[in-house]
Amino acid sequence: MKNIRKPIAISIGLILLVLLPKAGISNYTIHLFIITLLNITCTVGLWLIVETGQLSIGHAAFMCIGAYASTLFVLKLGLPFWPSFFGAGLVSGFIAVCLGIPSLRVKGAYFAILTFGFGEALRLIISALVNPFGGVNGIVGIPNPKGFGSVASYYYFSLVLALLSIYLTKRLHSSHWGLNFRFIGHEDSLAESVGIDIMWHKVIAFMLAAILAGLAGSIFAHYHHYIAPDFFTFYESVSFISFIIVGGTGNVWGPITGAIVLTIVPEVLELKESRPLFYGGLIMAVVMFLQNGIVDIPNLIQRKIRWR
């Protein structure tokens, strides 16, 4: 008998989320939700590729690619918003495939180093080229798409993208794709010996992660009206990783929880420059003490209680 509580809880949650902007909360709070939702979108995608055992610490680069692609499509090529939006995702995905095919052949630290280098190299190039990227100062005056103007409209946009991303990632994770990804991540020669094409799977995961990040980047660019290479640094890439590590990797709720908690808590604590300190410290604490992430805390408490 299917558990009826879960769908009800989800429905209530969705209704609350939809009604949120009407509840008379401040624009700042809605802004926080928007950023959180965009972070969720990027993080669940990254989670897919991390499941295959590839630690990508340059993920912000794909958000950057999406942001700049969308902006340039609209401002320089004069395209309408929607083709630019989807185009941003496609460009991001395409670059991911180009990078992934040579890079995903290496694992572990080598791949981390590669993605680290890629993120920095991209940032350096964008900073250096004033035309067309606006150089270090970035691009200002990114217009609202038609029909979007209020903070609430961007909120719904981000909400829809986040929900679709969660649905996509959760579906993949529960399907044979997720099973394949996990085995590739743990024992790839075993997976290969039963016919699983490792490169294919990794490239697809990498591409999907990049597409989601690219779409999120596009929304960010138009919402924020201003983008610069300094918005997409190593620190941002590590933030996504920290969401996954702190939240846990077991199922899709780990990255989601991590993204929500780690986006909101620093705001509540009003950390500005100390944000990387907070994320870095949390990563270190989790790696040293809490192997499976915050999601695991209830388990650990249970175990402690049982041992009494």
Binding site: S175, W177, N180, G195, I204
Partner: peptide, 16 residues
């Protein structure tokens, strides 16, 4: 189950 997948195609849309 992992090994049974060998004869299946990619089935991406089907899975999603």
């Amino acid at each position: 189950v992992l090994s049974c997948g060998i004869s299946k195609g990619f089935q991406f849309l089907g899975a999603v």
